[in-house]
């Protein structure tokens, strides 16, 4: 028996809309749950003072420093490397088996669990290169971890720039590099920024790879070879070791708000850039 398309249409709307609402509800529930438990702890004192008694009391100031500095250094390393690689792969090479192998390789790397990168960073950066548990080792490990994401998202963004723009630029006497600089990168920027944002989010939330490579010192770092603790690691240790549930949720709430602020700022900056270009 054939079902009336009007009914199937209704069914589709209910299923698709229902899925969307369910996803939003789950997300909202998680965020509200954490903010509700964490926000009462968060105040200026909590944000600006050092932890005492392993984090049972006091604030989370050193972990905020760690959370800022590790992803920033990691992205400062990974973004140019990743973007240059993607430009080279998409603009300077013809599509061959080799580029397909490279692409497949980066896809595989993107899917490797972060703890494997942590182990690699521990063996290579911490031990072999004798960096010790440090900002440098942690950042380099995070950079390696997010590189595949940045390469793939940048490459997609670059490929999405219309081919005719390249033709026009070349026809006006531009070199390949001038075309990349003046036409391709500005137009691919929104996509590239999305990849970088995803990577910042992953770096900020990363725990396993960071414990292995940056350690978990609660002191405020003074050099690149000092160990740091990030908010994510702090949260993990507080909760895992049963040190303080309240402060763990306070840290988590701060982390969520920080990620929100970073995302909003990035999209605001990007929209301003796009608006200015007209």
């Amino acid at each position: 028996m054939r079902i009336n398309p009007r009914h199937t249409q209704k069914g589709a709307v209910i299923i698709l809309g229902g899925a969307t609402i369910l996803v939003l509800l789950i997300l909202a529930f998680i965020i509200i749950f954490i903010l509700e438990k964490g926000l009462p702890v968060v105040n200026l004192q909590f944000l600006s003072s050092k932890p005492r008694d392993l984090g049972r009391a006091g604030g989370i100031f050193p972990t905020i420093i760690g959370t800022i500095i590790l992803p920033v250094v990691a992205l400062l390393i990974a973004t140019p490397l990743g973007v240059f690689t993607s430009v080279y792969l998409s603009e300077y090479t013809k599509e061959t088996t080799l580029t397909k192998v490279i692409r497949f390789g980066t896809d595989c790397l993107a899917g490797i669990p972060s703890i494997i990168f942590g182990l690699f960073g521990y063996i290579f950066f911490v031990i072999t290169l004798q960096m010790g548990w440090s900002i440098l080792a942690g950042s380099l490990t995070l950079a390696v971890m997010v590189l595949p994401t940045i390469i793939r998202t940048s490459e997609e963004a670059i490929r999405a720039v219309p081919k005719v723009y390249r033709e026009v630029s070349f026809s006006l006497g531009a070199s390949g590099w001038q075309t990349v600089k003046k036409v391709i990168l500005p137009n691919a920027l929104p996509g590239i920024v999305t990849g970088v944002m995803l990577s910042i989010g992953r770096s900020i939330g990363e725990t396993a790879a960071v414990i292995f490579t940056a350690g978990s010192s609660l002191r405020i770092p003074t050099t690149a070879f000092d160990s740091v603790r990030t908010m994510a690691v702090h949260f993990y240790i507080l909760a895992r070791e049963g040190i303080s549930q309240e402060n763990a949720y306070g840290t988590a709430a701060t982390l969520i708000i920080a990620v929100l602020i970073i995302n909003l700022t990035a999209y605001w900056l990007m929209n301003r850039f796009i608006a200015r270009r007209g």
């Binding site: 005719v164 723009y165 033709e167 026009v168 630029s169 026809s171 006006l172 036409v183 137009n187 270009r277 007209g278």
Partner: peptide, 13 residues
């Protein structure tokens, strides 16, 4: 110089 079949202004002013 070359003018293409479809007008293609670059996405700038």
């Amino acid at each position: 110089g070359m003018v293409f079949a479809m007008p293609v202004p670059l996405p700038m002013s």
